[in-house]
Amino acid sequence: MKKILGILLVVVLVVGLLPLVAGCSSDTVDPLAAKVRLKVGTTTSLYDTGLWSYLEPKFEEMYDCEVDILSLGSGAAFEYAKKGDIDVLTIHSKADELKFIADGYGIERVPFAFNYFLIVGPESDPAGIKDMSPADALKKLMETGAGTFVSRGDNSGTHSKEKAIWAEAGYDYATQVVGAGDWYVEAGGGMGATLTMANEKNAYTLTDMGTYVSYKSKLNLVPIVNSGSILLNVYSVIVVNPDTIKTLKHADLAQKMVEFLTSPEIQELIGKYGVDAYGIQLFTPCAGNEPTQ
């Protein structure tokens, strides 16, 4: 038994040292450095585009803290926040955001960037909906059943937008769209995962511009519907209200996140993000103002 324990001990020590040897002792895992950990719940699209991975180290350096990015759908992010597990949210689901604040969970909604949603699909366009209005396009999909539509199905901001378009098309989402047929698929995953699935299934899906552009090289999907005022996609930052959720400890730092995202320097970086790699602007900065088209 002693030998076994001895060997186990050696194994544990080796494992502990492994990251050091490999020269990648990430200071984040060091239990001695008790830095403040700010938990940011974000919509998957800001994560899947790589924007957060790009901004995160800058904030950490500026305020000497650790930022934990939790990539969730906006719906899940709200729920985690209500339970006190998240300090600040970056999301894109205006109606839900306003309700979140009205219910006292959030302090203020500060828009910091926007882009557009679009419906993408296979080049062959089996349902023949190219360049229709978003509502007409979904209506035709429903009526003909020609072609598959992959929905996020996770109460995310993109999913909320999809529901809004269905409403504009005159359908009740819960009763008429869910379970409407084999052509309507609920993926239940992040934006990247949903695009990947739509690609595999040769299906249509609603996506934000940023994620689509950053995934484009891996996809055979092309833009099918990309104009209509309903397709505006606004990203906001909301600090979770420490007066409602008493267990929150980092409200000051969370407030700094709002200042950070709306600062001229970071706004410029958001505007430039991905331009070199994809040749197109992924996000339009809008420091604190609600964009109108």
Binding site: L8, V11, V12, V15, G16, L18, P19, A22, G23, C24, S26, V29
Partner: peptide, 22 residues
């Protein structure tokens, strides 16, 4: 090439699983 990100992910996996089992 001991890619740092891959190595730290693998290291953490091993650390967590071994700690749990011990």
């Amino acid at each position: 090439t001991f890619d740092p990100e891959v190595m730290s992910i693998a290291g953490l996996s091993l650390e967590i699983a071994l700690s749990s089992v011990v």
